[in-house]
Write a protein that binds this DNA or RNA. Sequence first.
DNA 1: GTTGATATTTAGGTTACCCTAATATATAAA
DNA 2: TTTATATATTAGGGTAACCTAAATATCAAC
Lengths: 217, 217
Amino acid sequence: MSPTKEDYLKILFELGGRTEQVPNKEIANRLSISPPTVTEMMNSLVKAGWVVYTPYKGSKLTQEGTDYAKKLIRKHRLWEVFLVKHLGFNINEVHPEAELLEHSTSAELADRLEAYLEFPEYCPHGGAISTDLMEEQEDMTVHLTEAVLGVPVRISRIVDEDRLLRYFENHDLKIGDRVTVTGRDSGLDLLTLNHGTTDKEIQISQTIAQYLFVEHI
Amino acid sequence: MSPTKEDYLKILFELGGRTEQVPNKEIANRLSISPPTVTEMMNSLVKAGWVVYTPYKGSKLTQEGTDYAKKLIRKHRLWEVFLVKHLGFNINEVHPEAELLEHSTSAELADRLEAYLEFPEYCPHGGAISTDLMEEQEDMTVHLTEAVLGVPVRISRIVDEDRLLRYFENHDLKIGDRVTVTGRDSGLDLLTLNHGTTDKEIQISQTIAQYLFVEHI
DNA sequence: GTTGATATTTAGGTTACCCTAATATATAAA
DNA sequence: TTTATATATTAGGGTAACCTAAATATCAAC
């Protein structure tokens, strides 16, 4: 299994490919590659049994594909805990490091690392580490864009992509914060939030808000 | 820089490519690839400025190539220390793990890891970690095959290739042991040693003894 | 100095992963 | 229901890193 293929499986999981068909374009966007390359890769992943692909519709992970993706994400998050807790990295620096390390981590190494870290439940971005908890969390949390107007929620997880993390940091948003969606303007692609702690108004792009997960309180 | 190219630089350093021309065949053997592939890769490494190549003779590392190789080896050895000291791995299990991790380790990560490990001097196989000490050690130590008959020496370093480590373990040899070469049979490719601690006679293949480094006491 | 053994290179081919340009399909709007 | 737009696929090409088979260079022995 190449790091490249592993990346496809992981992205597929992150885009909901466990339960829904993910269109090629979304994968192409997230990985910054051309759509024909995605088509080609999907055919290869189908042949290897990781993915079910319906031409012109999109791809879903098989059970094997889902399990593989979850293991990768677990490794990624374990490294993030290590980098932050023991090596003193800043939360928004660890993603690219873990992105590399995850592909070089045997099952044995992951298990030993997990024990060494004393079985942490969450990564620094709020993502569940145990592969069982992972699916549960995926199902329970909701995109910020789907939160009901006026109902306060708690930010539980931020998709850990470098540029995104800096965007959220610049808007003073972090895990655990309570926010209330007060307005939605689809034309301008804007979401207006009230920050529970500071009571300030925050405006962020809806497209980007998709990468923020919230839980009801 | 691809992991593949990094492996070539590292092997070149390990085979003495810092000071001498290394023939293609040795590289092909150590990496288990065909000689034509080595020729091809050497041309590409020359173009990138890592290597000076004389056709039909062999390759030498440039200063840049040497520095790059030393940084890789440092990362490799740092991971080995971490795996043994903190994750409880066995010495002969860590090589393949570190072999993967070294290619996924930024300079920043290596520095932080080194500080976390409290600046260890040597890896579990006896290899120096600081890039300065590394060359020094390389120059001072001598292959077991070159030790003078009857003169006791101390095993200082074992090239950490998985199969070799198991071979040395099976012959009850480890770092720090005092041994004396008592006989050499080139026809049978045999080296006879006297083990300083147990006073037992040990016979190992000369070919394999090349991967054992010793220091005079 | 020719010969033979060994090492190296050249020639030609494969697979993985990426691309652009052109074509085809699906979907939403008129 | 046709048409426009967005999305996906096919066709054709490129580079990196491997391979085998055949040709060539080196070097030591005669």
